[in-house]
Simulated scan of single mutants.
Amino acid sequence: MQEEKKVVYVNGYLALVVLVVLILISAYLGLTGLAFEQPVKLVLGIILFLVSFLFLNSMTIVGPNQAKAILFFGKYLGTIKENGLFVTVPLSQKSEISLRVRNFNSSVLKVNDFDGNPVEISAVVVFKVVDTSKALFGVDNYLDFIEIQSETAIRHIASEYPYDTFEDEDITLRGNTAEVSEKLAIELQERLAVAGVQIIETRLNHLAYATEIASAMLQRQQAKAILSARQTIVQGAVSMTQMALEQIEEGQEINFTDDRKIQLINNLLVSIITDKGTQPVINTGELKDR
């Protein structure tokens, strides 16, 4: 793969002054040789004028954050990245390319996530050209190449992770957008290195279940949320009940029978787990026959 290199060029303002002087000299020699029938001066004036005109034609203007790739009869000579007026190799072709930071907003893509659920996803890719040789000559059209490779990478990354899950250690598209965007940027950089493009940032800007399953997946999310909350409540209730029994027995030096423990545990669990208010029942003791 051809790498970018620097072409030979000189300051255009200084060269412009020199070329104007050379053109004046060539005009003087041509007119003098023609008037006094001195063919040597006439030929010298013509040659000097042609050389000055060729170099004058090779002048080029490079704007801020722009570059000019110089080709001489199909051969890549190098790139001018400085901004200003310059004179370079005569009879060369100059291809302009922008070095500005640009955005690419992908279309909304329908992809199956890791669990096989269809989701809609799109991303914004921030990039800039850092190697003009690869961007112009490494691929056919680097802007089209960026678009196609970006959508391909988005599809691949979306299929690597589930849309959502209730396991804290799992990486999901919805819950870990920063990590997913970072993975997307790394994969895009690997894909677009051949085009001389640097990825600055990627961000997901649209993420949702596909319309045909959105309602069903919402119910599924609600059911999972309720189940997860119930599991947390039960775990907390068991822990609180165990702690209460230990504190009562240790602090008051009370030893419960197995039946009394079961009854106490049942009452505590019911009062903690239930989502409705409980009515206390006061136990005044057992009646004995006399």
Results as ranks from 00 to 15, higher is better:
201 E>H: 10
132 T>Y: 07
177 T>N: 01
164 D>L: 12
212 E>L: 10
143 L>H: 03
145 F>S: 03
197 V>R: 02
142 Y>T: 01
190 E>R: 10
141 N>P: 02
193 A>R: 13
197 V>Q: 03
209 Y>E: 08
149 Q>C: 07
159 S>M: 13
137 F>C: 01
180 V>C: 08
198 Q>P: 00
148 I>Y: 05
210 A>S: 15
154 I>L: 15
160 E>T: 12
212 E>M: 06
150 S>N: 12
180 V>Q: 11
147 E>K: 12
165 T>G: 09
180 V>G: 09
205 N>Q: 12
146 I>K: 02
159 S>E: 15
136 L>W: 00
175 G>D: 09
133 S>Q: 01
177 T>E: 13
163 Y>I: 07
207 L>S: 06
193 A>Q: 13
144 D>P: 03
171 I>G: 08
187 E>W: 01
140 D>T: 08
137 F>S: 01
145 F>K: 02
194 V>A: 06
147 E>A: 11
133 S>Y: 00
142 Y>V: 01
176 N>C: 09
131 D>C: 03
167 E>K: 12
152 T>W: 03
145 F>I: 00
154 I>H: 15
147 E>N: 04
209 Y>K: 03
178 A>E: 15
188 L>F: 08
197 V>I: 14
143 L>V: 11
178 A>S: 12
149 Q>D: 10
194 V>R: 02
196 G>M: 03
151 E>P: 08
200 I>C: 03
211 T>Q: 14
184 L>Y: 10
169 E>M: 12
179 E>Y: 10
207 L>D: 05
210 A>P: 12
209 Y>L: 08
172 T>L: 10
210 A>R: 13
191 R>C: 04
163 Y>G: 06
192 L>G: 06
167 E>V: 06
152 T>P: 00
199 I>H: 04
204 L>T: 00
163 Y>N: 10
174 R>Q: 14
191 R>L: 13
199 I>Q: 06
161 Y>F: 10
166 F>L: 13
191 R>T: 05
149 Q>R: 15
202 T>H: 04
188 L>I: 10
186 I>M: 06
159 S>C: 09
148 I>W: 05
203 R>P: 04
176 N>H: 14
207 L>H: 02
207 L>Y: 08
148 I>H: 04
177 T>H: 02
180 V>P: 09
181 S>F: 08
212 E>G: 05
157 I>H: 04
136 L>A: 02
139 V>W: 02
171 I>C: 08
177 T>Q: 15
190 E>K: 11
156 H>C: 07
152 T>Y: 06
211 T>L: 12
155 R>W: 09
160 E>A: 09
203 R>W: 09
198 Q>E: 14
163 Y>C: 06
189 Q>L: 07
146 I>R: 03
154 I>V: 15
137 F>T: 02
141 N>Y: 00
168 D>P: 08
151 E>F: 08
162 P>R: 10
210 A>C: 10
193 A>D: 14
140 D>G: 07
168 D>N: 11
